[in-house]
Design a protein around this nucleic acid. Structure first.
Lengths: 199, 199
DNA sequence: GTCTATATCGGGATAGAC
DNA sequence: GTCTATCCCGATATAGAC
C-alpha cells in the first residue's frame, strides 16, 4: 500500500526509461529529471554524475533479465526441452523490456572495454550448456555447439532489435501484427531449430 | 591515377567512418575534421549542418550495400540456391562494413520516423522473394514465408552486431577466432536453414 | 576554398538559499 | 532533501581574413 515512492527509485525508474531508449550518449540529464518530475540538480545529489547513474541502471537491468535465463540453462531438462523453454523465456523477457537488447548491444558496441567486464559477470551460463549439446547431439552429427547457441540467440534477439524495420516494412506499421509475429516465434523458433538438428 | 582527391569525398569518407562507429548522437564534428585532416569549419562549408552531412552519408551507405543483396533476391536461382548465395553475400558485405548493421539498426531504433522512410526505398527486394518461398516450399509444409526470411536475416546479422560479446565471451578476445567463426557461418547458415525446411 | 577567431548554445556539474 | 542560480566546458555554427 506504500504509495509514497522515495525519490531515489523515482530517479532510477526515469533514468532506466530514458537510457534504454536513447543510450548513454544521447541521453540528457534534463530529460531524466523531467521524466521523474523533479529538479535536475537532484540527480546529482543522489548520483554524483551521469556516468554513475548510468552504471546503477545498467547493473540493475542486467540483474533483472539475466537470472531468468541462467536458471533455464542450468536446469536439468533435456536439450530439446531447453530449446523450447529458452525461446519462450528469452522472448517473454524482451516483451517486457523491448529496448533491453538494443540498449546492451549498442553500449557494448560503442564502449566494449567499459561494458564487457561487467557483462561477463552475468554470462557464465552460456558455457554451462556446451557439454550437454555435445553429449546429446553434436558428437554423432556434425553440429557445432557454438554455432547452435548463436543461432538460438540470433533467432530470438534480432526480431526484437529490428522492430522498426519489421513493423514498418513487413507489417505496414501495424503494432499488433508485429506483436503477434513475435508471439508466434516462441513456438516457431524451437520448431525450426529442432527440425534442423534432429535427423 | 587521379591521386588528387577532392575535399568533398575526403569529408564523406571521414564522416562515414566516424558516424558508422559512433552513431549520429555521439559523433563530434571535430572528430570528422581530424579524421579528414582538414579544418572543422570546412565541414560546414560543404554540408551546412551535421544533420545534412549525416543524411548524405546514410544515403550513400545504404545504396552501397543494399543493391548487392537485392540483386540476389531478384535473380532466378532456386530457393535453396538463393539461401546459399544470400548468406554468403550478406555476410561478405558485412565483413567489409562491420559497423553497418548496428549503425542502421541503432539509428532506426532511436529515430524511426526520420530514418524509416528513406530506408523503405531500398527494401523492396524483401517482398520479391515471398512468392517463390510459397511456391517452392511453404504450400505443402507449414512454413511461414515471413518467419523464414526473418530467420535468415537474424542468423546473418546478429553475429555481426553482437561481435563484442561473441569475441569477448566465447572467443576470449581472439579476433581471428571470431573472424573464422563468421567465415564458417557462410556455409553453416544455409546448411542449418535448408536442413530445417526440407523434409 | 581554406583557414582563424568568435558567437552561441546546450548540457553536466556545483554553490548556496531554504 | 529540494530548489534556483550559475559556472564551465565542449560542440555546432558563423564571420571574416587570406
Amino acid at each position: 500500500m506504500e504509495k509514497e515512492i522515495n525519490t531515489e527509485t523515482l530517479i532510477l525508474n526515469a533514468a532506466k526509461k530514458v537510457f534504454m531508449q536513447k543510450g548513454f550518449g544521447a541521453t540528457r540529464m534534463q530529460e531524466i529529471a523531467d521524466e521523474a518530475g523533479i529538479n535536475k540538480s537532484l540527480l546529482h545529489y543522489y548520483f554524483r554524475t551521469k556516468e554513475k547513474l548510468f552504471d546503477a541502471i545498467f547493473e540493475e537491468v542486467l540483474s533483472q533479465v539475466i537470472p531468468k535465463i541462467s536458471k533455464v540453462m542450468t536446469s536439468d531438462y533435456t536439450l530439446f526441452e531447453k530449446i523450447e523453454i529458452f525461446a519462450d523465456t528469452y522472448i517473454s523477457a524482451f516483451q517486457k523490456n523491448p529496448h533491453f537488447p538494443m540498449f546492451v548491444l549498442h553500449e557494448l558496441s560503442s564502449n566494449p572495454e567499459k561494458i564487457l567486464p561487467r557483462f561477463k559477470n552475468h554470462l557464465g551460463y552460456i558455457e554451462k550448456i556446451f557439454p550437454q549439446i555435445k553429449k546429446e547431439i553434436s558428437s554423432d552429427k556434425n553440429i557445432d555447439a557454438e554455432q547452435l547457441i548463436i543461432n538460438m540467440l540470433s533467432l530470438c534477439i534480432f526480431p526484437i532489435i529490428a522492430k522498426p524495420i519489421l513493423k514498418g516494412i513487413l507489417f505496414n506499421n501495424d503494432e499488433n501484427k508485429y506483436l503477434e509475429f513475435i508471439e508466434k516465434r516462441k513456438k516457431e523458433i524451437p520448431k525450426f531449430v529442432i527440425n534442423s538438428i534432429k535427423k
